[in-house]
Amino acid sequence: MTTSTPRSPLGGLLGLVGFVLVVGGASGLLHEWFGWIRFMGFTRFLIPSGYEVLGYVVMIALGTAACVGAGARRPA
């Protein structure tokens, strides 16, 4: 029998934000490179005009960091 520590609501919110950033950044990169339909179109309002590829890469990096931070546990 395993015991798990309860997840904090802030960790869940941070995981959700990280997921949205990663998926939105990947969707934006696919749109910029291949012209596919945007999956999460609202992310284009977060990126300055002319810096789309760099902005989407930064979104993916920040989303990954948020997901890792959400999964981190405080040492006992």
Results as ranks from 00 to 15, higher is better:
residue 50 G to Q: 02
residue 23 V to D: 02
residue 4 S to C: 08
residue 5 T to N: 12
residue 8 S to P: 09
residue 10 L to D: 11
residue 76 A to S: 13
residue 43 T to G: 01
residue 51 Y to E: 06
residue 15 G to E: 11
residue 7 R to T: 15
residue 60 I to T: 05
residue 62 L to Q: 01
residue 66 A to G: 01
residue 10 L to V: 15
residue 14 L to I: 09
residue 46 L to M: 11
residue 17 V to P: 00
residue 11 G to P: 03
residue 45 F to I: 06
residue 46 L to C: 03
residue 31 H to S: 14
residue 16 L to N: 01
residue 58 V to M: 07
residue 71 G to I: 06
residue 50 G to D: 02
residue 8 S to V: 09
residue 57 V to G: 05
residue 6 P to T: 12
residue 5 T to P: 08
residue 30 L to F: 10
residue 15 G to S: 12
residue 40 M to Y: 07
residue 12 G to T: 13
residue 37 I to L: 09
residue 47 I to P: 05
residue 37 I to R: 09
residue 55 G to A: 03
residue 56 Y to P: 04
residue 45 F to H: 10
residue 59 M to Y: 07
residue 14 L to F: 01
residue 47 I to L: 05
residue 2 T to E: 13
residue 3 T to I: 12
residue 8 S to K: 12
residue 32 E to T: 10
residue 10 L to Y: 14
residue 52 E to V: 05
residue 61 A to D: 07
residue 7 R to E: 15
residue 18 G to C: 00
residue 54 L to D: 08
residue 11 G to A: 15
residue 51 Y to K: 02
residue 58 V to E: 04
residue 65 A to Q: 02
residue 19 F to N: 00
residue 60 I to G: 06
residue 44 R to T: 15
residue 70 A to E: 03
residue 51 Y to S: 04
residue 59 M to S: 08
residue 54 L to K: 02
residue 64 T to E: 05
residue 2 T to C: 08
residue 67 C to G: 12
residue 29 L to I: 15
residue 44 R to K: 08
residue 18 G to H: 00
residue 31 H to E: 14
residue 52 E to Q: 09
residue 32 E to L: 09
residue 35 G to L: 03
residue 54 L to S: 07
residue 36 W to L: 15
residue 44 R to P: 08
residue 73 R to S: 15
residue 44 R to I: 13
residue 17 V to D: 00
residue 49 S to P: 08
residue 2 T to M: 11
residue 11 G to D: 15
residue 41 G to S: 13
residue 51 Y to D: 04
residue 20 V to F: 02
residue 56 Y to V: 04
residue 22 V to T: 04
residue 36 W to C: 15
residue 71 G to D: 12
residue 47 I to C: 04
residue 33 W to F: 14
residue 3 T to R: 13
residue 31 H to Y: 06
residue 49 S to F: 06
residue 60 I to S: 06
residue 19 F to Q: 01
residue 18 G to L: 01
residue 32 E to Q: 11
residue 51 Y to W: 09
residue 7 R to F: 06
residue 6 P to A: 14
residue 75 P to H: 11
residue 5 T to A: 14
residue 40 M to T: 04
residue 31 H to L: 07
residue 33 W to V: 10
residue 53 V to W: 00
residue 39 F to C: 11
residue 3 T to C: 09
residue 6 P to K: 11
residue 60 I to V: 14
residue 61 A to I: 12
residue 7 R to K: 13
residue 71 G to T: 09
residue 3 T to M: 13
residue 59 M to A: 11
residue 51 Y to C: 03
residue 73 R to E: 15
residue 30 L to G: 15
residue 39 F to I: 14
residue 22 V to R: 05
residue 63 G to L: 00
residue 65 A to I: 04
residue 72 A to N: 03
residue 73 R to I: 08
residue 36 W to F: 12
residue 39 F to W: 10
residue 57 V to S: 06
residue 32 E to I: 05
residue 60 I to Y: 06
residue 62 L to W: 02
residue 27 S to W: 02
residue 20 V to G: 00
residue 65 A to K: 01
residue 8 S to W: 09
residue 74 R to K: 13
residue 32 E to Y: 05
residue 23 V to M: 03
residue 72 A to M: 12
residue 10 L to E: 14
residue 68 V to L: 14
residue 18 G to E: 00
residue 24 G to R: 00
residue 67 C to T: 12
residue 37 I to M: 10
residue 48 P to A: 05
residue 47 I to M: 09
residue 38 R to Y: 06
residue 67 C to K: 07
residue 31 H to R: 13
residue 42 F to R: 03
